[in-house]
């Protein structure tokens, strides 16, 4: 009796059964509470000093530089890839799409091992690179490679989704009016999917910024060269928990900003 009464009032409120609200609140608390815990744990008096220490600033600078570079790599390679996946049809396309998305679900440490055996000194490409005098391991380039590897699927996925959602009507019209494929791409296709491209780019940047496992496995950890913010947090935790918490808060804030930006884009765009 009570149940049906609750259900009716819930349906009046939101079209949802009443029992859904308790677990929903629990689920929300489950996600939000740990973030609150970080904020509560921050030593505010020492916060400015902690996030502006040499090690922290070096890590912050390196993170911003590498995440920007890897986002650029994702754009250069990921946009054409998404176009091919969305607009072409050839045997093996579905398999290719699945493979491209693998880093999305792969544990990052596995990605790191895979990269090590590709670009490492004794890896598939490593020995050829060594002949050319290029040493990837333990360099900033290794960090960028690791980040681009894990971040690219985010860009490809959101851009491909946007492309498929838009269809090819306008492009066909443009083509019949005599526009070359390059002009169609530049003047019609990309402007149409700009919101999807933008949110994909922000997601890829955020994922790059948060990359940890593959970097640790593949690139090593040295201040100013390969030790990005997440690696700095991991190391500071060993000796100075307050520093680790302060830097964690910085990353939480970045994450919140990214979500706000991408959600905003999505609701106004698509």
């Amino acid at each position: 009796m009570l149940r049906s009464g609750q259900q009716r009032s819930a349906q009046q409120r939101a079209g949802l059964p009443g029992w859904a609200f308790a677990p929903a609140a629990l689920g929300a608390a489950f996600v939000v509470l740990p973030l609150v815990a970080v904020v509560v744990k921050v030593d505010w008096a020492a916060f400015p000093a902690l996030v502006t220490s040499d090690a922290s600033l070096a890590a912050l600078r390196l993170s911003l530089v590498t995440a920007s570079c890897s986002t650029a790599v994702c754009l250069l390679l990921g946009v054409p890839l998404a176009l091919v996946l969305a607009r072409c049809s050839f045997p093996g396309l579905r398999l290719l799409r699945s493979l491209v998305l693998v880093p999305l679900v792969l544990p990052p440490v596995v990605g790191g091992i895979a990269l090590l055996y590709t670009f490492g000194r004794q890896g598939l490409l490593g020995s050829s690179l060594e002949v050319l005098g290029l040493r990837i391991a333990f360099s900033t380039a290794a960090v960028v490679i690791a980040q681009a590897f894990v971040a690219m699927p985010f860009l490809v996925l959101s851009l491909e989704g946007a492309l498929r959602g838009r269809g090819t009507r306008y492009e066909q019209v443009a083509a019949t009016l005599g526009a070359s494929p390059s002009i169609v791409l530049r003047r019609v296709t990309l402007p149409l999917v700009l919101p999807g491209l933008a949110s994909g780019t922000v997601l890829a940047f955020a994922r790059s910024l948060g990359e940890f496992g593959a970097t640790l496995t593949f690139a090593g950890s040295l201040q100013g060269v390969t030790r990005t913010l997440p690696l700095e947090v991991y190391l500071q935790r060993e000796s100075d928990a307050r520093g680790a918490v302060a830097l964690s808060l910085v990353l939480v804030v970045v994450a919140v900003v990214v979500i706000v930006v991408t959600r905003g884009r999505r609701t106004e765009g698509v």
Partner: peptide, 21 residues
């Protein structure tokens, strides 16, 4: 002047084992 300062001794070992270091 190390090329990397790892968080654990096993990480150092694996980087030498794999021939990276």
């Amino acid at each position: 002047t190390p090329v990397s300062e790892e968080s654990s001794v096993t990480d150092v070992l694996t980087k030498v084992e794999s021939g990276e270091a």
